[in-house]
């Protein structure tokens, strides 16, 4: 199972250290250097890209737009909030909530569930590390010999989007030429050998 990295953002020293030592009991997790200063949080998240962010709600209203929903979604980061107030969850679209009064086994249960979900997702992504299904679809069209314009028309997307996808595909696979991409597509059963002109 891949290890899951967890970042704790909490200004209270007691909670920060306490939570860290509780979570440590879970195997399979890596606890990153915790953050106590909310000004730094944004930078650190961007740099470390943790799988799970456990944050006190008072760490998130720092005006750091990045930490709001889109950022969390884009980074495929799970958000666990620490709070006294149970109604806060909806505001941040958190995946789970740890309450001040939760006991150790409750906290472990919450975190473990999140960690297992993450690990499972990571495992799936890894076996399919290379291309997203959208990219696979684009690659298929490239391999069939379509031009960017033709692909854009068929998939109802802009040429610009096709070009971006192509760039990403090339970067991920390390293959630049169309004929190289075609060979890859055949090897991975994206297209049939007979389909190629």
């Amino acid at each position: 199972m891949p290890r899951i990295s967890i970042l704790i953002a909490e200004s209270t020293c007691l909670i920060r250290k306490g939570l860290g030592s509780v979570i440590q009991k879970l195997g399979n997790v890596e606890i990153l250097q915790p953050v106590s200063n909310k000004v730094e949080l944004c930078d650190i998240v961007n740099r470390l890209k943790p799988d799970v962010l456990i944050a006190n709600t008072n760490m998130l209203d720092s005006g750091c737009e990045d930490l709001k929903k889109p950022f969390i979604a884009a980074n495929k980061m799970s958000l666990v909030l620490i709070s006294e107030d149970k109604s806060i969850e909806g505001k941040y679209n958190a995946d789970a909530l740890i309450h001040y009064k939760d006991n150790q086994s409750k906290i472990l249960e919450i975190i473990e569930e999140i960690v297992n979900q993450k690990a499972e997702k990571k495992r799936i992504n890894k076996s399919n590390e290379t291309l997203s299904s959208r990219e696979q679809n684009i690659l298929k069209h490239i391999a069939l010999g379509l031009t960017n314009k033709e692909i854009a028309d068929q998939l109802f997307i802009s040429i610009h989007t096709v070009v971006t996808h192509r760039k990403n595909i090339t970067q991920k696979l390390g293959i630049k030429s169309v004929s190289g991409l075609t060979v890859y597509a055949i090897l991975n059963n994206l297209i049939n050998m007979d389909e190629v002109k």
Binding site: L173, G174, I175, K176, S177, S179, G180, V183, Y184, L187, N188
Partner: peptide, 13 residues
Amino acid sequence: EKLMDLRTIMIKY
């Protein structure tokens, strides 16, 4: 370019 692609394919895929 094609030459590089070929060895990438042979090594990676």
